[in-house]
Design a protein around this nucleic acid. Sequence first.
DNA 1: TCGGATGAATCGAGTTGAGG
DNA 2: CCCTCAACTCGATTCATCCG
Length: 583
Amino acid sequence: MFLSMVSKIRTFGWVQNPGKFENLKRVVQVFDRNSKVHNEVKNIKIPTLVKESKIQKELVAIMNQHDLIYTYKELVGTGTSIRSEAPCDAIIQATIADQGNKKGYIDNWSSDGFLRWAHALGFIEYINKSDSFVITDVGLAYSKSADGSAIEKEILIEAISSYPPAIRILTLLEDGQHLTKFDLGKNLGFSGESGFTSLPEGILLDTLANAMPKDKGEIRNNWEGSSDKYARMIGGWLDKLGLVKQGKKEFIIPTLGKPDNKEFISHAFKITGEGLKVLRRAKGSTKFTRVPKRVYWEMLATNLTDKEYVRTRRALILEILIKAGSLKIEQIQDNLKKLGFDEVIETIENDIKGLINTGIFIEIKGRFYQLKDHILQFVIPNRGVTKQLVKSELEEKKSELRHKLKYVPHEYIELIEIARNSTQDRILEMKVMEFFMKVYGYRGKHLGGSRKPDGAIYTVGSPIDYGVIVDTKAYSGGYNLPIGQADEMQRYVEENQTRNKHINPNEWWKVYPSSVTEFKFLFVSGHFKGNYKAQLTRLNHITNCNGAVLSVEELLIGGEMIKAGTLTLEEVRRKFNNGEINF
DNA sequence: TCGGATGAATCGAGTTGAGG
DNA sequence: CCCTCAACTCGATTCATCCG
């Protein structure tokens, strides 16, 4: 590994859209001047699809160069705000037809996906300083292999064997289990952190079981985190190569009056015999017989606020492990500190778990960590001394919590980040409900959907059993509890008081058993600001019901105290005083 | 369902314009 | 008039679910 100056920070290694190997091959062949596809794209596709003549001429000209080196921009191009109207302005866009062949080309995001795919499999190589790509020897061999030939398949299997996330999926399936994309997604990459969202399967199945039949298809289609999607796509590739077999998985999820109710998830996978063989070879019996793994700095975090810092930290941990045989966690910590990264042990452990979940074999024996893989050399970009990598406040807070929380599973620490990301509302909603049930020990349900609160929880066997109507909100700047949201809560509290089917036919309040007679309301978000207090007081006066707001950080701390036995749900009950709950 | 498709959040380079 | 630097603009990048 060596440092290199760069200007662009890109993301590689995690592929969202592409699924067809035929299209992958076309993309690789664009880099092979002797291929048919190269000529087709240059002479037919680009001239007909790229309307802007300046761009058209430029793209044809670079495809006519002697050495085919394309920049990211030339390959991927750009989009517009109304994406379906974005003009074709790049090579990969023109190389692949869209679904239904309406426009004749794909958009920049899918083009980016194909680029990442070809790069992840080692068919093209990234040149940092010019932000461009060239074909590799393996890529050229793939390009030249006959379609559908044994050689082609061999090349693809070899390539996927050195792509860590694919090996991770095979490893998770190794003992023959039938796992869904959610099982896999939860254990893939830096799962849980921003950029690696995974939906809690239990909550999803429960929501599915309790949904109206007409809504089930939509839930099954649309409820999917990024990690779940990565898992689904990798599973799909492996299925095509015969290494896993995709088949739906059924679950018995009892609902009210239907104790044997069945639900299914279509995206589930089992390893095949051939898959096991490939996995054994990828693992090898010694470091030297293992298939070398392609790891990139650009895949060590994706959507994180602090991705540059975190990627470099993770890359350095890997580098430390590559250089040493076997190290204690404290030794890794010391080494990192010498490199300017002062981190608590739990952060390093968390990073190593993420590296393992990315498909890198790191053995943990007692207190010792040892890298079992042969990692191909990769570049850690260096943005120069002017831009020092500094830990952000958010990273600081997360590492503090990693240190503090002994009982709460650390995957929940990412709620701190998720709660600030307004695009992750659904994940936050589901995870918070899961947390209340799994960690606090409340009973209840994630509800969601129209005219229902996000969740309803309650106690059983407390001195005074009570129910809480929960609303969550992911918000970047601090949540001020706008009046619209408060009004919505007012409606839920009142619906629960009157319980009139004609007012709300979905009767969401049926979650609460008759033993629960006291109710609270609660808003959960990253942090609160503005006049949330006035809204809480107003709600309390109108509904005669006590409520509160709860920050995600306090949610975690409360969960820790419950697990440690220093807080009870009865004590939590007394904290609903129309203000912010602090433990 | 499969294989992308979509609107949007965010980030950072470039532009503007107030202050000196 | 020219320089500095923060505020703001706008295009590029990357989701996190969505969907024909």
